[in-house]
């Protein structure tokens, strides 16, 4: 009975956080539907594994970001070996891939791909207008470090933007 409640609560959380997970998957992969699907699966695995330890110590969305970033960064470093236990519909991943083929969005991702994984994580939080304090909580760094790094990323993006025009 308790297990069922936990299952329902997790699925509700997943429904609320689905777009966040998709954004992270798109940012940390090459937008290939297969790779996006693999990363989505890994992130859901990690969230499911960590779900019992979430006790509202931070906002739910901040917690999702921190787990998802952690999984995405480790998947980028080492290829995923997660068991294929999720049966996922392919259509969503194809739509996401199509959506990312817009020329402006492709250019955006081209710039993002040149950033390091921690910078990508910070940029996504910044673009999603997450407050600096929550960014710090999600990434395990201080608010001052967040602001400092944001400024550095802005400089990097400016340079990259000028060199790729």
């Amino acid at each position: 009975m308790n297990q069922n409640k936990e299952h329902i609560a997790f699925m509700e959380m997943l429904r609320r956080s689905d777009s966040t997970i998709f954004k992270i998957c798109l940012m940390f992969t090459d937008r290939d539907p297969k790779n996006v699907k693999d990363m989505y699966q890994d992130i859901v695995c990690s969230l499911w594994e960590s779900w019992p330890r979430f006790r509202g110590q931070c906002k739910e969305n901040t917690w999702v970001y921190s787990i998802a970033f952690n999984t995405a960064v480790s998947q980028v470093r080492h290829r995923s070996l997660s068991p294929m236990f999720l049966s996922l519909d392919d259509n969503t991943y194809n739509y996401l891939a199509e959506e990312s083929k817009n020329s402006l969005i492709e250019r955006l991702y081209e710039l993002i791909d040149r950033l390091s994984p921690p910078d990508k994580a910070l940029l996504l939080l910044y673009l999603d207008r997450i407050p600096a304090r929550e960014m710090g909580q999600a990434l395990g760094i201080t608010e001052a470090a967040v602001n400092h790094r944001i400024e550095r990323i802005k400089d990097k993006l400016k340079t990259l933007n000028q060199t790729t025009i």
Partner: peptide
Amino acid sequence: RIEQIAGQHDLSHIKLVPRLFVLSS
């Protein structure tokens, strides 16, 4: 656009297994 796509994402496909079998990194 991503939020729209996520809104149409069918989560009923997801079958969660016992945590013991989740082999995280």
